[in-house]
Design a protein around this nucleic acid. Structure first.
Length: 501
RNA sequence: GCCCCUCUAGCUCAAUGGUAGAGCAGUGGACUUUUAAUCCAUUGGUUCAGGGUUCGAGCCCCUGGGGGGGCACCA
């Protein structure tokens, strides 16, 4: 623990802390306040990446970054510096910087942040480098970096210490870069179509807009129970009532459910609502948003889709399949189904497929179960599943051609649901009836059923224009475009059990 | 909640039930064009925790914990 011999973690930290003390005794600050850099390392490479080997320029730069590697060859030290977007080699010559500065440079540790003044050059082998004139410690790292070659692979450590993961794993940095590009792309596409970005409450008096178990919390001053939102839907549609016409929100959603490769208790959803549009417009926007995001994030609309048992390459720019839920079930089971059929008939079919059915379920819910068990896992390439039964779609408008179905779709890619949209139900009388059915289901013991949201009904009574709405799971889109298998790879700090220190 | 896998040095990994090891990092030394630099030497361990079996446990058994995968759950 004390002293600077040995080489465990404690000894390593002690040695570095001692270096900090020694710096301070010489009047140096191991944690200075700022550094004015002139170029980023990506800019440096853009400007000078084409230099031939063995060239020394007079081009002076000030750069800043973290020391990632160091190669000491006596009176010369080569180090690799990295900033957010690039790397460059530092060329440190004892003859150039002088004995004291040279020793000081050798005293740096991997992981230290430094600022460097120097000139641009290339080595004999052609490596773009900065010939260091002056090097300033910007922040001393007390803890050593993970393995310089193997990086960090332990998932526990990677997710708990995301900072360390980001320092050493290129793939981690890439995934979050892609996530950023996707979100930026979505915003651009929607701004281009006249959408306004809004923010609505996270704390809800009633957890509506979806079927999910909510997190419950409490407000002290109001002394009331509140729920973390499970969807954005109902507030955004209130804004359409208010005449905002085209709104969207990218927001965190909370669902008190299991954790898996596809689920995190808090995740990010985008929802958008467009007045005077219907679900067909939402289908078109879904396709456009995701395809454009892939292009913006990766430069190509071709993605590799990882299904449960297979993986395929798909060009998102090609039209996506559309199929009604009832037709997919018929295709999978060989039996025509429709929510107008007697519930006994559908129960029998479910039983044939080994699906246990709650006595509370009507025909529509059983059809959905049949779909999930028989058809969903086959939807690897992007597929819009449409025409959900009314029973399972309390906020969607009835299909203009079939009173048992709704004008609704869900997008499946890689057998995962990515999006959900519909022509919004805007008849306040019918909406109340649907809410009453939901409340009845909740009272009968369905923890995920909704309640009667009186304020939302009041809003509808002011008049919701014909509206198309859409929700897309941003994390899952990021998984698709980044080509990763777990949602934890696209959430910076995924939900984990607390660590014991 | 259930099932399976996993946990060894700071990191990446070894180790028939028989003295816990390697590479990297670290430390000391050599080297003015290296780039996972190289070469020589070298420090470093509560093997997740607690029990048990055994002459002897990193390894086998039990309990607990973290993580991963699957199931269940999840519009």
């Amino acid at each position: 623990m004390e002293g600077t011999t040995g080489s465990g973690l404690a000894a390593e930290k002690a040695k570095r802390l001692q270096k900090i003390d020694e710096l301070r005794t010489t009047g140096a600050n191991p944690y200075p306040y700022r550094f004015d850099r002139t170029v980023t390392l990506a800019e440096l490479r853009d400007l000078h990446g084409g230099l031939e080997a063995g060239v020394e320029t007079d081009f002076e730069v000030a750069i800043a970054g973290r020391i990632m590697l160091s190669r000491d060859s006596g009176k010369l030290v080569f180090a690799t510096m990295r900033d957010r977007d690039g790397e460059v080699q530092l060329f440190v010559s004892k003859a150039v910087v002088g004995d004291d500065a040279f020793e000081a440079f050798k005293g740096l540790d991997l992981g230290d942040w430094v600022g460097v003044h120097g000139t641009v050059m290339t080595t004999r082998k052609g490596e773009l480098s900065v010939k260091v004139q002056r090097c300033e410690l910007l922040s001393k790292a007390v803890r050593p970096l993970p393995d310089k070659w193997h990086g960090l692979t332990d998932t526990d450590t990677r997710f708990r210490q995301r900072y360390a993961d980001l320092i050493v794993n290129d793939d981690a940095r890439r995934a979050f870069r892609i996530r950023h590009e996707i979100i930026a792309s979505f915003r651009r596409t929607l701004h281009g179509r006249g959408f306004i970005e809004v923010e609505t409450p996270v704390l809800h008096v009633e957890a509506g807009g979806a079927h999910a178990r909510p997190f419950v919390t409490h407000h002290n001053t109001l002394d009331m129970q509140l729920y973390l939102r499970i969807a954005l839907e109902l507030h955004l549609k209130r804004l359409i009532v208010g005449g905002m016409e085209r709104v969207f929100e990218i927001g965190r959603i909370f669902r008190n459910e299991g954790i898996s490769t596809r689920h995190n208790p808090e995740f990010t959803m985008i929802e958008l609502y467009q007045a005077f549009a219907d679900y067909s417009e939402m289908i078109e926007i879904s396709e456009r948003l995701i395809t454009q995001a892939a292009i913006d994030a990766t430069g190509t609309s071709v993605v590799t889709i990882h299904g449960p048992t297979e993986q395929i390459q798909v060009d998102l720019a090609q039209p996506w399949r559309r199929a009604r839920m009832i037709d997919l079930v018929a295709e999978a089971t060989g039996v025509e189904v429709h929510p107008s059929q007697p519930v006994e008939q559908l129960r029998a079919l479910a039983a044939e497929h080994g699906i246990s059915v709650s006595p509370r379920w009507g025909s529509g819910k059983i059809i959905e179960e049949l779909f999930e068990y028989t058809a969903e896992h086959t939807l690897i390439a992007p597929t819009f599943v449409t025409g959900h039964p009314v029973e399972i779609s309390p906020l969607a408008r009835v299909d203009r051609h079939d009173p048992y179905l709704t004008e609704r779709f869900e997008l499946f890619v890689g057998a995962r649901e990515l999006a959900n949209g519909y022509s919004e139900l805007n008849d306040p009388v019918e909406q109340r009836a649907r809410f009453v059915d939901e409340q009845a289901a909740k009272d009968a013991g369905d923890a995920e059923a909704g309640t009667v949201d009186e304020d939302y009904l009041r809003a509808l009574e002011y008049g919701l224009p014909p509206t198309g709405g859409l929700g897309i799971g941003m994390d899952r889109v990021a998984m698709l475009i980044a080509g990763v298998h777990s949602i934890k790879e696209v959430i910076l700090f995924p939900t984990l059990r607390p660590e014991q220190f």
